[in-house]
Write a protein that binds this DNA or RNA. Structure first.
Lengths: 348, 348
DNA sequence: CCAAACACCGTAAACGTTTACAGCACCTAG
DNA sequence: CTAGGTGCTGTAAACGTTTACGGTGTTTGG
């Protein structure tokens, strides 16, 4: 009693064997009378199955892990929001890992799969190293990777198409007449950093614009870092007229710094973010952003994983989610409802 | 090999007993020679401890659950952001539950504690019913509740002081000259809904303002619902000059609707949110909001739980986090850097 | 009426650990 | 030379389930 009823307690009280108790609890064919006795005993005792013992025997934990770089990043949260209900509906619990973008932590997570405390893993690694690939190859547990992975890696994979995404944004800026389009990126040794940097270069080239390395500024994928990067950029290249930011947080940092520097957005400098997070729609001015389909990617990843957990073997699959440019005030103009009223301010 | 090495595999290969293997792996005193052999065997086999078997024996899972109403709500995410690193640092994994604000799901989570798949739970229930209290009393697993709980409930508890929070906001609006201050609330049978509604009434009373039930509109704690509620309110009470919104999402919905209705914020209608989420700082206009210390509450809850997990018994504790009013453009005026430039628009 | 089939149940092994206990070899003290 | 340590190790039980297997007692078919 101090220690919670087990299947043994029930067996004793119901006067049957533990095997019968187990059978009843699992709905296996049993005589009505026995079912009744066991159920009654279980109810009276307030019995709840021990998930750990169950998992040990059945080799299934009904848990799935989601490993992301940063709990603070709304792009991952958008994934999480989609992943959670899909798993919940299928009867899986969600274990959350935030790796703080450090490779060792990601490797740790992969390594810990060996502990068998989850049935599967969805991971969105910032960097993909040789160590990642080795551990993926060795993993006995199903894994879905969100983000690009080298050709031929045998793993379920959900990708954004950030190359096309960046191109959409650059074309948009070009169409608006911008010619000094800078790139504010995160570290180049990250998967998104590298992809977006390369895409920027390509897009410029295809438009016949020169690639000026002064226009490229590397910071990190956070708001404050983004701001710092933009400040440096402005100091070096004062005539920049558009900022392609590698994510929304960087773009928000850019808005902060531009405002402080007295540059108008979008008149003086147009700003585009990426990921199209909630913050983009809510920001001031609202932020044009390239949606890379975070929500869709999360959903697809969860579904791929479930399929593999339930269905068993099949060839690894690759799902690519197309990007979409969402144009808002930071490039296109002003919020319609407010346009004509901005010169009548008084009340404080 | 098809099935992963166990302690037995190692024992065989190293030519020792499984007890010795276990001792080596747990760092218990063992002869150097044995340690060497076991380590070598473990390395060669790529052995990883099975967490499930370990938990069964040790009765500790090193997992902690966090149950919240809605993964989409930034206030809970702020808590999550603080909870995660605290638990991680202490060697616990985080299991996430989103109850979608339905009571049955919350009860389910409490019930599932009996499965012993976690060592502890942090829960932020939207409603606290008799069933909640019963299950809490019966729980063998440490629980920390974020949110108010009836006097005398024997459970660790972290609270916001939304009464003082609402008062800060109402006083602020009053000081700005507003006299028709409406309340846009969530369901009154939720813990925050009830508290904030009551606090609103009290604050008005203390200021000598009449309580006009036409000025109270009930919706739900989401952006779209908030917008709908405000639309109804505007139709019924066109002369309202301030909105006290029960959370930031409602306030954002309010901004949407006010903009569409051609009301200026803050000139015509001042708006205050609650929770001071990231969205408040990023919104347009930026949103004055009452911080209820979501981050601090999350941190405090995690620390309380760890203390209990490690320390053992002690009296249940109550931590109250003080609120803070963060004044931004939606009540106070305009973002300084932009004020003088808003009539020179041309570039599209 | 007997054999075979059947329905149900209990015994026991297994899942992969941790750990109490006892045994062994060696050493030290008397 | 023996008694009692000491240091290390192996055996086996335990954690709470699930499940293969064999053993009952009852039904059915010939």
């Amino acid at each position: 009693m101090a220690d919670g009823p087990t299947i043994n307690t029930i067996a004793e009280r119901a006067g049957v064997s533990i095997a019968s108790v187990s059978r009843v609890l699992n709905g296996l064919p049993t005589r009505q009378e026995t079912v009744r006795k066991v159920m009654a005993a279980a109810d009276e005792l307030g019995y709840v199955r021990n998930a750990v013992a169950r998992s040990l025997k059945s080799r299934r934990t009904h848990q799935v892990a989601f490993a992301m770089a940063d709990v603070g990043n709304p792009a991952y949260l958008a994934m999480l929001r989609q992943i959670q209900p899909v798993l919940k509906a299928a009867g899986y619990r969600l274990v959350l890992h935030s790796t703080d973008a450090v490779v060792a932590d990601e490797i740790d997570v992969l390594h810990s799969l060996g502990e068998r405390y989850v049935d599967g893993l969805i991971m969105s690694p910032l960097r993909v190293t040789e160590a990642h690939l080795q551990m993926l190859a060795a993993a006995r547990t199903p894994v879905v990777i969100i983000g690009s992975v080298p050709e031929g890696t045998r793993v379920d994979n959900v990708r954004a198409d950030s190359r096309t995404g960046v191109r959409l944004a650059i074309d948009h800026l070009y169409a608006l007449g911008r010619r000094r389009i800078a790139m504010v990126n995160g570290p180049l040794d990250t998967v998104p950093g590298a992809a977006r940097g390369a895409a920027y270069r390509e897009a410029l080239q295809d438009l016949g614009l020169p690639y000026d390395e002064n226009l490229v500024q590397i910071g990190d994928f956070y708001r404050a870092e983004g701001g710092r990067a933009v400040a440096e950029l402005l100091a070096r290249v004062p005539d920049v007229d558009a900022l392609m930011c590698a994510n929304d947080l960087i773009a928000l940092g850019a808005l902060d710094v531009l405002r402080a520097a007295g540059r108008r957005v979008p008149e003086d400098v147009a700003v585009v973010g990426m990921d199209d997070t909630d913050l983009a729609a809510a920001s001031w001015p609202s932020l044009t952003s390239v949606s890379l389909g975070s929500a869709e990617r999360g959903k697809a990843a969860a579904e791929l994983l479930l399929e593999r957990l339930q269905g068993g073997d099949r060839e690894p699959r690759l799902v690519t989610v197309p990007p979409e440019l969402v144009v808002r005030a930071s490039t296109a103009g002003y919020e319609p409802g407010y346009e004509h009223r901005t010169d009548e301010r008084e009340e404080a």
